[in-house]
Design a protein around this nucleic acid. Structure first.
Length: 147
DNA sequence: CCTGAGCGT
């Protein structure tokens, strides 16, 4: 019904998956105080390779790791979840990462939480990109890599 | 911490 319209507008997938990410804000208003970041709908960029690692964006500044974990735990076993916060101040950057125990759960988590409301903001969930790598990094710690 | 886009301490 009405939710389907919001769902479609939130995900922006409709028929084909365009590469639009940042497009929605907290409220769907007719007049935005500032112009939208991008209107590039001809961008053909594949989301990412299927992995248990999830990249969640569009989070509220008040959303924390616990809220993210609790939200995604409903669709699968969340091994680890983290909301990326600024190292200098410690405030949320507005996005985070969620790692499921399996890729199927990750897919279920995406389909379950992508375009949904969390803390009053529409969040976007997609597969996270593989990190440069391990061992020779800056921290040299086994924080979290691909399985 | 605001303008919010974006792939991590």
């Amino acid at each position: 019904m009405a939710m389907s319209a919001i769902r479609a507008a939130a995900t922006g997938r409709m028929t084909s998956q365009g590469g639009l990410r940042g497009m929605l804000y907290s409220t769907i208003s007719s007049g935005l105080p500032f112009a939208p970041p991008q209107v590039n709908q001809a961008n053909k960029e594949p989301p990412a390779d299927p992995s248990p690692n999830l990249f969640v964006s569009g989070l509220s500044k008040r959303t924390t790791t616990e809220g993210l974990h609790a939200a995604f735990a409903k669709f699968g076993e969340v091994v680890h979840a983290r909301v990326v916060t600024d190292r200098n101040s410690g405030f949320s950057k507005g996005f985070g990462f969620v790692r499921y125990a399996n890729v199927e759960e990750a897919e279920a988590g995406i389909k379950g939480m992508d375009g949904q409301f969390l803390d009053g903001w529409v969040i976007f969930a997609e597969y996270a990109r593989p990190r440069p790598v391990p061992g020779q990094g800056q921290f040299g710690n086994t924080y979290g890599q691909r399985q």
